[in-house]
Simulated assay, not measured.
Amino acid sequence: MTTSEENEGSVPSERYFSNVGAVAAILGLVIYVVSAVLHPWTPPHETEAAFADYAAEPNWVLAHLGELLGILLMCAAVIALTWRLRRGVSGVWAILGGAAMVACASVYAVFIAVDGVALGILVGRWAQAGPERQELLYETAFAVRQIEAGLFSVQWLLFGVAAGLFAGAFFTGARTAFRLGWLSGMGWLSVGASIGALSFGIVQAQTAGSPTLRWPSRPDCTSA
């Protein structure tokens, strides 16, 4: 066996990794979309109605676990893309983008634990509780909802960072005439995704997903 053959056998196959990544991307997207359809679509700022729909949804946990699986599969596809772009200057941007995407998926996993498990349990108890306990459980569920909103905003901010880093990878990787169009197009698509995700994450952090909710003004602690 030659040295080049030994080196090829010691690292993952780029073609096979790309094929696995493509399958993971398609499968992840399908699973995520199907799971999202199972999720109640009540506007989140209509909190009481949303909680009632969440409590009545028998597939609440299953839908959220499906969404998580879809995101993890799409994250695997991004890791495969990172491996493909690993060479040269573009590899620096791709590796940083892949790391940001892994961080994004990790935050999303925590988000699913809060939204898909903790909130589901609380709204279920709220729906079944007597009048004397409903207000307390409602406020508790609402507090958990704000943690969920915070995680959701951080997730989108990390996705925006990852997309921006991959834009750098695509632009620096566009070296030949054949690859220029494809990589440049992906670069500009990543720029748009980055701007959109960062903007959404900021808005989400400011409003907690509600068009009517804003940060309360600070109390005047200097007055007697």
Score class of each variant (00 low, 15 high):
61 V>A: 06
63 A>L: 08
64 H>F: 00
65 L>C: 00
66 G>F: 07
66 G>R: 01
69 L>N: 09
69 L>D: 02
70 G>L: 12
73 L>W: 10
74 M>A: 05
78 V>E: 01
78 V>N: 09
79 I>T: 10
81 L>T: 13
83 W>H: 13
83 W>S: 11
83 W>D: 10
87 R>G: 05
88 G>H: 04
89 V>K: 13
90 S>E: 00
93 W>C: 09
94 A>W: 07
95 I>E: 03
95 I>Y: 07
96 L>Q: 09
96 L>M: 09
100 A>L: 05
100 A>V: 04
102 V>L: 15
105 A>Q: 01
106 S>V: 15
106 S>Y: 10
106 S>G: 14
107 V>Y: 12
108 Y>A: 12
112 I>Q: 02
116 G>A: 01
118 A>Y: 02
119 L>H: 03
121 I>D: 04
122 L>K: 07
122 L>H: 04
125 R>D: 13
128 Q>I: 03
128 Q>N: 02
130 G>Q: 12
131 P>Q: 09
134 Q>M: 07
136 L>A: 11
137 L>A: 01
139 E>P: 02
141 A>Q: 08
143 A>D: 08
144 V>M: 11
145 R>E: 14
145 R>D: 15
145 R>Y: 15
151 L>Q: 07
151 L>A: 11
155 Q>T: 14
157 L>P: 05
157 L>F: 05
158 L>C: 04
159 F>D: 02
159 F>T: 08
161 V>L: 02
161 V>T: 01
169 A>I: 10
170 F>C: 11
171 F>I: 13
173 G>E: 03
173 G>M: 03
174 A>D: 03
175 R>P: 07
178 F>L: 14
178 F>Y: 13
179 R>Y: 07
181 G>T: 14
181 G>S: 11
